[in-house]
Simulated assay, not measured.
Amino acid sequence: MLVFILNAGSSSLKYQLMNPVSKEVLATGLCERIGIDGVLKHEFTDGKKLTLDVSMPTHKEAIELVLKTLVEGEGKVINSIDNIDAVGHRAVHGGEEFASSVMVTPKVIETMKKLIPLAPLHNPANIMGMEICQDLMPGKPNVAVFDTAFHQTMPDYAYMYALPYDQYTKHGIRKYGFHGTSHFFVSNEARGMLDKKHNTRIIVCHLGNGSSVSAVLNGKCIDTSMGLTPVQGLMMGTRAGDVGAGAISYMMTQEGMTIDQTLDVMNKKSGILGISGKSSDLREVLQGMQDGDDRCRLAVEMVAYNIKKYVGAYVAALDGVDALCFTGGIGENSSLIREIVCAGLDGMGLNIDPTKNNKRSGKPRDIATNSSTARIFVIPTNEEYVIANDTYKIVSGLEK
Score class of each variant (00 low, 15 high):
L2G: 12
L2S: 08
S12W: 02
C31N: 04
R33C: 01
G38H: 12
T51M: 12
K60S: 06
K60H: 09
E61L: 01
L67F: 04
L67M: 14
E74H: 07
N79T: 11
N83H: 12
A86P: 07
F98Y: 14
A99V: 10
M103I: 14
L118Y: 15
A119K: 07
M130K: 10
E131L: 12
K140S: 04
A144C: 05
M160D: 03
P164H: 00
Y165L: 02
H171G: 12
Y176E: 11
H183G: 09
E189I: 03
R191T: 04
M193D: 12
K197I: 02
H206D: 12
H206W: 12
L217E: 01
L217R: 11
K220C: 06
T229V: 05
Q232H: 09
G233H: 02
R239P: 08
G244F: 07
S249A: 15
Q254Y: 06
E255I: 00
T262G: 09
K269M: 10
S270L: 05
D281V: 04
L282P: 11
G288Q: 02
D291M: 08
G292K: 10
G292R: 13
L298I: 12
M302I: 15
M302A: 13
Y305K: 06
Y310M: 13
Y310N: 12
A323Y: 05
I337L: 11
M348E: 09
P354N: 07
P354I: 10
P354A: 10
T355V: 15
T355M: 07
D366V: 11
S371T: 14
F377K: 12
A388L: 05
T391P: 06
K393V: 08
